[in-house]
């Protein structure tokens, strides 16, 4: 399993996730019978200090749920999450989470929704400081100025309101706020998905610079595979709640093994008019409400075998830090 990612023992992972499961209680239709929806289905991975794990997958595959679990925003159903040596799942999870909470932050997709429109930018950025408490007025003001400089915005911005800024600038403000308490690990949930191309590259580069300067580790969630390639160290691919493949970035993009990853990469339109894409993969993402036994991708997989419809493939290391959950390997 993820042991395969631990090739370098000097670089012990700061985040370890084992067999993580998250279920939600839902009702089927209006007033329908209750049901259990397994949004995250036995996933395991590591994140090493100062690196970025890119988490990709289509809508509803469980990416955001994974991100929220990782920073303790929602409790796990089962499985284990250790952050900086503290296990935040299980009986003593609450106490462990309290110890590491200040090291964790979250950057959201929507630069509009995540900033309070009635608060000045400076106060938005200082929100985590105010919640933590114990800062003098001067320290707080200095920190806000420093943060604005860090994300490449002029200091005067502190006095203005979020709506006066473009999407890209608002995302910078969101990042400044996330950095306020000097976190070590930041979950970025689709931080550039709502931005135009010319803004995306600026924010990606900013996140890379911050990582270099501050030694941050990221879980970077996105549905855009090219965006993930531009920022990740390792990449994990989710499908219907499961992690189907993970590998160092270059390996995953140049030699994908899982049939779903292959189809996904193939489906992305390239800005290259000479490329001829193969015919699209048929079918749709299966409902995770009534999962069939076996591999979740079986209904769409061009390589499906009899065993695939019976047994769920377990993740297996295949060398070079590559982990694949598919009966072909």
């Amino acid at each position: 399993m993820s042991a395969a990612l631990k090739t370098d023992t000097a670089d012990a992972p700061i985040i370890q996730v084992r067999d993580l499961v998250k279920e939600f209680n839902v009702t089927r239709g209006r007033g329908g019978p209750p049901a259990i929806l397994r949004a995250v289905n036995h996933i395991s991975f590591d994140i090493r200090s100062g690196t970025t794990l890119g988490l990709v997958g289509e809508s509803g595959s469980g990416k955001s749920t994974t991100g929220r679990l990782l920073v303790g925003l929602i409790p796990a159903t089962s499985g284990e999450i250790s952050l900086f040596g503290e296990t935040i799942t299980g009986a003593d999870g609450e106490a462990a989470l309290a110890k590491v909470r200040s090291k964790l932050q979250f950057v959201f997709q929507d630069p509009h929704g995540s900033l309070n429109p009635r608060m000045r930018v400076g106060d938005c950025i200082a929100e985590p400081i105010d919640i933590a408490g114990g800062w003098s007025r001067k320290d707080r003001a200095d920190r806000v100025s420093e943060l604005l400089e860090t994300v490449g915005l002029p200091r005067a911005v502190a006095e203005r309101f979020p709506h006066e800024f473009s999407g890209g600038q608002r995302q910078r403000i969101g990042i400044a706020r996330a950095l306020a308490l000097r976190p070590d690990f930041v979950v970025c949930d689709e931080p550039v998905s709502a931005l135009d191309v010319s803004m995306q590259a600026q924010i990606i580069n900013l996140l890379l610079d911050l990582q270099e300067r501050l030694g941050l580790s990221y879980l970077f969630i996105a549905h855009d595979l090219a965006v993930v390639r531009s920022i990740a160290t390792d990449v994990a691919v989710m499908y219907a709640g499961a992690l189907v493949e993970q590998a160092p970035k270059t390996v995953l993009y140049s030699a994908p093994k899982h049939p779903y990853t292959q189809a996904l990469l193939d489906a992305v339109p390239r800005p290259d008019p000479d490329r001829v894409r193969s015919a699209a993969l048929g079918g749709e993402v299966p409902s995770i409400l009534n999962p069939l036994p076996g591999c979740a991708f079986a209904a769409r997989c061009p390589h499906v075998m009899a065993v695939c419809r019976q047994d769920r493939p377990a993740p297996r290391p295949t060398g070079e830090g590559h982990v694949v959950a598919c009966h072909l390997y």
Binding site: A201, K249, Y253
Partner: peptide, 24 residues
């Protein structure tokens, strides 16, 4: 030209993406 170079690349590793300065 700026737009085409700023697009994240799927088929190669790029260390830093070229950007377009400023905003829309």
């Amino acid at each position: 030209e700026g737009l085409l170079t700023a697009i994240p690349k799927l088929d190669v590793d790029v260390r830093r993406l070229p950007t377009i300065a400023g905003s829309i």
